[in-house]
Write a protein that binds this DNA or RNA. Structure first.
Lengths: 122, 122
DNA sequence: TAATGAACACGCTGTTCATGT
DNA sequence: ACATGAACAGCGTGTTCATTA
């Protein structure tokens, strides 16, 4: 049995949470996750988002709405290509299974850390 | 900033907790830690105890009461050598600093995981 | 057998670098 | 600059193996 939950599934959870509401892309999602967790004293590295996204694609949970151009830059007229992600047809269903597993892990970890606090402090 | 607290400091915390009460040795401590955490669904590997012990020795927090013989085996008359650990002179003081740091990490992790549960479930 | 710990392999993570728009 | 992701390096961890009493 592993010690604590890994960063990967943890971030995937947030990715799915974001995609529950709307399509999004890598850097936007990492920013949002950072916003969620900044107060908790944790800043996930950029790379983790992409790793998580690729794993979710491989798992058939999400897919890439292949390259779509975004708003152009007002001054330069540049177009920025991004990769949008969204659920596959049965993706939400698969995601529920994944979420359930992660929830179990999450609760186990919380219980463990609380126990450690109880055992070793106060 | 790292993601979650590592297994090493986590176990060291329990080692110190045990040594707060009495001297002990490797396998005995790992057994006790397992007892503490079994209900939480976590079984630390044996090796981690030794790694933690060595690090605490290096840090000058504990020291080894060099090899002491233990109870003999009733039937064979064998003697088993063990390595007892205890606090150094200023070990408890140093340990307090370490514990304080770990407590901060512990609380941070709990907060983070709770936040994730709040964000992604219920 | 109990006890210690070395040694190995591997996965995860953080940083940096490369590429393209 | 923004966006993606490959590539590299290093640490932590889990398992196995070796040694000794």
């Amino acid at each position: 049995m592993a010690f604590l939950i890994g960063q990967r599934p943890f971030i995937k959870l947030y990715i799915l949470h974001i995609l529950d509401q709307r399509q999004s892309y890598g850097l936007e999602m990492i920013s949002e996750v950072k916003r969620y967790l900044k107060e908790e004293g944790y800043t996930p590295p950029q790379s983790e988002i992409y790793r998580g996204l690729n794993e979710l694609v491989t798992a058939g949970i999400i897919e890439t709405t292949h390259r779509i151009k975004k708003d152009h830059n007002g001054s330069t007229g540049d177009f920025q290509e991004i990769i949008l992600y969204k659920y596959t047809i049965d993706g939400r269903q698969k995601a529920e299974m994944f979420k359930r597993e992660v929830k179990l892990e999450l609760d186990r970890c919380i219980g463990m850390l609380k126990q450690a606090r109880k055992d070793n402090f106060k």
